[in-house]
Amino acid sequence: MTDRLYSDPDLVQFYDIENEGGVDFDYCINFAKDAGSVLDLGCGTGQLATALARQRSVTGVDPAPAMLDIARRRAGGESVDWVEADARKVRLGRRFDLVLLTGHAFQVFLTSKDQEAVLGTIAAHLAPGGRFIFDTRNPAAEEWLEWTPERSERELEHPGLGTTKAWNDFRRDPASGIVTYSTYYEIPDGGRRMLSAESKIAFPTRENLEGMMEQSGLVVEEWLGSWRGGPFGPASPEIIPIGRLLEDVSKRFARHRA
């Protein structure tokens, strides 16, 4: 993990302030209601994993020690099995009723090879009858246009540091579609201390994802366009596939034909 936004404790301390549970959090809690076991890939600081662990077995996987340090100290964190690992390579030797990858974590995987590897990890950990769900921003919505200093400037209330000014900036490679965005925090600790990080994310299309799913042993049963539950459309802000193992669907179809 080389992205300082997730690996530097000075920056990670802002993660929960910037990413309080919202409609995605609520949707996943409800979606998991019938799951006895959950694998949270890219679990970050563990907000969702610890909430899910109140009623089921949960394993949270993340490659960033600084994020997992917060997750382990979180109230309820002792109920989760935390694993420091890369979602492209991790193999836990067990399967789960639900595998999820939220917070746009899928977008940190920049190449189709890496994206296919993550989908392979999802398939390798799904129990028979299990389901998966993850999110990625729809490139057609061009959300990166909002990540300018003028449009993104905000004030954060840090419990120890006080009011902190934050903003973003970006540049986009038109050939690859990869967006490099910068995050800045100006901290009022006597002077004006500056923290910053540069991150890269990919914006695969729905067509890109469809092409990788079957090869990875997965099939999508529903495409959402937002965490409010609406169906995907060309202008939707999100691409959210929900599905199962391809072999589960194939067996169901074979029984139906018989």
Rank of each mutant, 00 (worst) to 15 (best):
P234R: 07
G103Y: 02
S182M: 09
P188R: 06
I239H: 01
G44W: 07
F253E: 13
I187W: 10
P139S: 01
L110N: 01
A105F: 02
E222L: 07
A141N: 11
V38L: 08
R137G: 07
T121V: 06
G77I: 06
G21Q: 05
E210G: 09
S79T: 12
P234A: 05
H158S: 01
G120T: 00
M67G: 08
G191L: 14
N30S: 15
G233Q: 14
D189Y: 14
G162R: 02
R192H: 12
A117P: 02
E247L: 07
F203K: 03
I201M: 11
M1C: 12
C43N: 02
M212V: 03
D114A: 11
E222M: 10
I242V: 15
P139N: 03
V83Q: 15
E150S: 07
T121I: 03
A105G: 07
P159E: 03
M212I: 04
A197Y: 05
G93A: 08
D3Y: 15
S176M: 08
T2L: 11
V12I: 06
L145Y: 05
F25W: 07
V219C: 08
S226L: 03
F14V: 02
L245Q: 12
G36Q: 09
M213D: 05
W147F: 07
G93R: 10
S182D: 14
P188A: 06
L245E: 11
M213K: 07
D173V: 04
I242R: 15
E207V: 09
I122N: 00
A141S: 13
V179T: 14
E221T: 13
W167F: 15
E207L: 04
P174T: 13
R4S: 12
L52A: 07
R171N: 06
F31C: 10
G120R: 08
G191T: 14
Y181I: 04
I17N: 02
S112N: 14
R54A: 13
L161K: 10
L224D: 04
D86N: 09
S216Y: 01
V99F: 06
G36W: 00
L110R: 02
T205L: 03
L5F: 14
G217C: 03
V90R: 09
D26Y: 02
T59V: 15
F170V: 08
T50Y: 03
G233A: 09
E238T: 04
A202Y: 10
P231W: 12
R72C: 13
Q215N: 09
T102F: 00
N208D: 15
F132D: 12
K200V: 01
N168G: 00
A175L: 13
K200M: 11
G76P: 15
V219Q: 05
Y184F: 13
G42H: 10
Q215L: 12
R206K: 13
L11W: 02
P65V: 14
D81R: 13
Y15M: 03
T148G: 05
L92S: 11
R151S: 14
F134M: 07
Y181Q: 01
N138T: 03
A117E: 02
C28V: 13
G190C: 06
E18N: 08
T2D: 15
P237I: 09
D26Q: 15
K165M: 03
R131P: 06
R88D: 01
L48P: 02
P237D: 04
G129C: 06
R74I: 05
D114R: 00
G160Q: 08
W167E: 01
T59Q: 04
F14T: 05
F14R: 10
E153N: 00
Y15D: 03
M67H: 09
A66L: 08
